[in-house]
């Protein structure tokens, strides 16, 4: 029973958060500070999602090239910066991950 309540409750909370601003009337103007902050949402939130995935190695913080996740991720960042190609970014990151793991 708790399980189904959790499913319905989590569903309601998640939908409310996602639909919140999209459902506001089209004519409504948001406060100026909020409007100036919005362009930074993708850079800030998406980076907050992936940065810890690189910095932690088996659950331990490791900011050296002995952390193959950080090394592979940085290779992917360089490839994405230079060429902006999704597939090349993912492929180079995965190859670098295995290469650094094997080398170090």
């Amino acid at each position: 029973m708790t399980l189904w309540l959790a499913i319905v409750g989590m569903g309601a909370i998640t939908l409310a958060l996602r639909a919140s601003f999209i459902l506001l009337p089209a004519g409504l103007r948001l406060p100026a500070l909020l409007r100036r902050a919005l362009p930074f949402v993708p850079a800030a939130v998406l980076t907050a999602l992936w940065a810890p995935e690189l910095a932690f190695q088996k659950g331990v913080l490791s900011l050296s090239l002995h952390n193959e996740r950080l090394a592979g991720g940085l290779v992917a960042v360089l490839v994405a910066w230079r060429w902006r190609l999704t597939f090349a970014t993912i492929a180079s990151g995965l190859i670098a991950l295995h290469l650094f793991d094997w080398l170090l």
Binding site: L46, W50, G72, A80, T89, G93
Partner: peptide, 10 residues
């Protein structure tokens, strides 16, 4: 995470 890097960095 690599897919998100590909979308964020550009």
């Amino acid at each position: 995470p690599l897919a998100f890097i590909a979308l964020t960095v550009p």
